[in-house]
Write a protein that binds this DNA or RNA. Structure first.
Lengths: 231, 231
DNA sequence: ACCTGAACACCGTTCAAGT
DNA sequence: ACCTGAACACCGTTCAAGT
């Protein structure tokens, strides 16, 4: 429906090829010529189905979004949010090269708003006030996507210890020094992701039902806001 | 020190030029030839100072990280965290094209660990247990960076309303329907960022001092306990 | 010691031509 | 209606040659 005469399936076929190349050899290898070759055709034969390379990449983002499985709305809201989060993480692990693109384009395509709506629903059921739902959705999706992308594209990766020591020769890092022992342990990203989901859930409960453990500065009637260290 | 004979300043000069081009015309315009032209030299004259284009982009990331101003460690930890967050957001607004690169490379360069250490320090002062500091730092940096990048590279941007309606013709979006009125308002990203920092602060307090359900006003009459490390 | 110019193997995209 | 082949204006990078 997006473009192309005759078969609209042809676009999907092209996107399949592009995704496979991205998974196997990285985003840099996704070339009009390479995709075309994989489909068994010349580069220019793609253009009826794909307006430009940018459009091809947008299509790839769409593919990732449709891969995201949405939870049954009958389930409790915390389960639904966790399912969406886990699904995003798995998608990131399957397609680490493409995932970062999700972070750069407006989340306004049908495939994207479908996910946003599912999160809105969960937040409404959690009791988040109507006027806060949109911002909390941005908080949730930013954290979940950010975590999934960071993990799968290597931001969390530790440097080679030897190289690391050489690199940081003269730098003074008091907290690193103090935490040295703890920083050696290689964490389980899966467990850490689950813990982040726990934190997120608690945060949402707090927004839905404020005036509980630790209130915001905004509704802090005691007048001892955190930023004001009474002398 | 990284490379290049004679003057090491020459590398900085090259990175200045590259950053200026990225700011003015986007990352796609950052070309060895374009950077060289701006420096007043041929493309191949860059190679003694910049191992490859990848190295050039790494250098750009380094520039962004050194632009991040680190807070005075004597200040209260919530202030320090907020300052780092705001500084990251401002950097993102100055250099939206380069910012996404921060999310794709391991945070192990000297420029990066310098920031990580500042966050570690703040978290330690907040009372986060030693074995949790690293994961909470990943939580904080992911959310702050994710927010800054999402805002500045347009992920949060709303679609053109007319086009939007056409695009979403047949899709059923129950939550969007219910929230229609609230979703029209264009939010202030600055205010939303500050609110996210509030949420983050509360989350950290909760991690530092957990297991106190309904203990708000009960055993903490000042409401300030978690925020006051001297307590 | 530093820079240039030509060259190589690529890009995305246009356009006329084929069937 | 769909695809091809040649061509254009670019890329990053290598290498011999200049001064």
């Amino acid at each position: 429906m997006r473009a192309g005469p005759a078969e609209p399936d042809r676009r999907q076929l092209i996107l399949d090829a592009a995704l496979a190349i991205a998974d196997e050899r990285g985003l840099g290898a996704v070339t009009m010529r390479a995709v075309a070759a994989r489909v068994g055709v010349t580069a220019m034969a793609l253009y009826p189905y794909v307006r430009s390379k940018e459009d091809l990449l947008d299509g790839l983002v769409g593919r990732l979004l449709t891969e995201l499985s949405l939870p049954d709305p009958a389930k409790p809201w915390p389960d639904r949010l966790r399912e969406i989060g886990r699904s995003a993480r798995q998608t990131a692990r399957r397609h680490p090269a493409v995932m970062p693109l999700l972070f750069a384009r407006p989340a306004v395509t049908p495939d994207a708003v479908r996910v946003v709506d599912a999160i809105y629903l969960a937040l409404l059921d959690a009791g988040v006030p109507d006027e806060e739902v949109a911002r909390v959705e941005r908080l949730v999706s930013t954290l979940v996507l950010g975590y999934a992308i960071s993990e799968s594209s290597g931001r969390f990766a530790a440097g080679d210890p030897r190289e690391q020591r050489a690199l940081l020769g003269g730098v003074d890092l008091p907290a690193h020094r103090r935490l040295a022992a703890k920083l050696e342990a290689a964490p389980s990203w899966e467990a850490e992701f689950e813990t982040a989901l726990d934190d997120l859930e608690r945060l949402i409960e707090n927004i839905a039902d404020p005036g509980r453990p630790g209130a915001t500065a905004a509704d802090d009637t005691t007048g001892c806001a955190a930023r004001d260290p009474r002398g």
